[in-house]
Design a protein around this nucleic acid. Structure first.
Lengths: 204, 204
DNA sequence: ACATAAAGTTAGAGTTGCTTACATCAAGTG
DNA sequence: CACTTGATGTAAGCAACTCTAACTTTATGT
């Protein structure tokens, strides 16, 4: 069946890849006008298609957003893993690097970050993507604690770390970091907190 | 001048106190339909007035929201102070109690909480109310560190605490706490983190 | 070539919302 | 009681946006 040079994806007829271009346009829009300041129409305008076109690719407006959120979540996950990989697996440095990258992602995509953590409205795809992301942290912490599996203790020690960088991200993009008026950088802030929140390894 | 039974405020002509009732209706609406799921029209419907009525009290839709946000911020501040006051000033217990109440407020008013930390759009009133709120923490921490003023160190030690409860709040209302699958309550989570994040007092 | 299905367009129905111009009504004042 | 003032209602303008239906164009396989 598939024989020569053309294997291109099914969804590459007229426009190229409208689905992806719509997602790109929407993402850009979100960053410009805020988590809720976008519309399908405007995304169409930017992608250079009619307002009816999207309905060949997405059943719904919410369907479109959900797809975008999942895409970003995966991108974020990839970056977190990559950032951690710069240090030996399961060390405080690796864990902190992930946290720093978390904040950094939020800083770079503030509105998308907000959108990602809005009302998922029970979309299982989003929840799954979220789980995958969190899992990258769980594995590091498990290793840090010298375990082969993610058990109760790993969960208990990991959650505060997530919580911390999550809050830092929000306050940071809200400009609330100025409140602190401390000269600390994100890197110092997250590194220090990670060190304090994790139990000392020495007991091992 | 004021003589008998009617002393009612200036802004209590026809409707009673439309301004406040509009804020109440809006708040209810926000909680029902999410941080951006409200409209002036719908608020009017609920307050039982025409869609034009609000414009005697607020110059704008954003003006209305801003007023609501400030109101909630003050309410939150009051609760935090009250929660802290249940313990000796400047103790870890008092600080943790404030943090727990912070999360609790978010839990009780999830959509408003989100709205409070959305795009303030440079409204100085909101920023001010935020500062007042944060200040209640700063004073506790200053006392914990045995200081009379809020200096650089107080700021540095306080910010992570805020960051932590802020993140916890968001994840909690997002239902992401299930990710943790840990049986910990908010109280335990925040107390433990507060203890770990603050420097030991013993060095004093 | 030709049939077919995918991808996109045109046109529009239906909804909702913000805001303003003007009319009305209640309450206090001289 | 006439008058002012401020609070609310009525009506309407206008702008968006979502989504559907029916039609057109393009690519693909045989």
């Amino acid at each position: 069946m598939a024989d020569t040079t053309k294997v291109r994806a099914k969804n590459a007829y007229h426009h190229g890849d409208l689905r992806q271009q719509l997602l790109n346009a929407t993402r850009q829009l979100v960053e410009e006008k805020g988590p809720d300041g976008f519309s399908v129409s405007e995304a169409c305008r930017r992608a250079g298609v009619s307002t009816a076109a999207p309905y060949r690719h997405f059943s719904d407006k919410t369907d479109m957003i959900a797809a975008l959120i999942v895409e970003c979540m995966k991108e974020m996950t990839a970056r977190l893993i990559e950032a951690g990989a710069a240090h030996p697996f399961g060390t405080i440095e690796a864990i902190a690097a992930g946290g720093i990258e978390y904040v950094h992602f939020a800083e770079t995509n503030p509105a998308m970050f907000r959108l990602m953590f809005s009302e998922n409205y029970g979309r299982s795809e989003i929840e799954e993507a979220g789980h995958d992301c969190y899992n990258s942290l769980l594995l590091q912490v498990a290793s840090y604690l010298g375990k082969n599996e993610v058990d109760e203790e790993v969960l208990r020690e990991s959650f505060p770390l997530w919580t911390f960088v999550h809050g830092t991200s929000f306050l940071w993009i809200d400009g609330k970091a100025d409140f602190a008026k401390t000269q600390q950088s994100v890197e110092e802030l997250v590194s220090e907190a990670t060190r304090r929140l994790l139990p000392q390894r020495s007991q091992q």
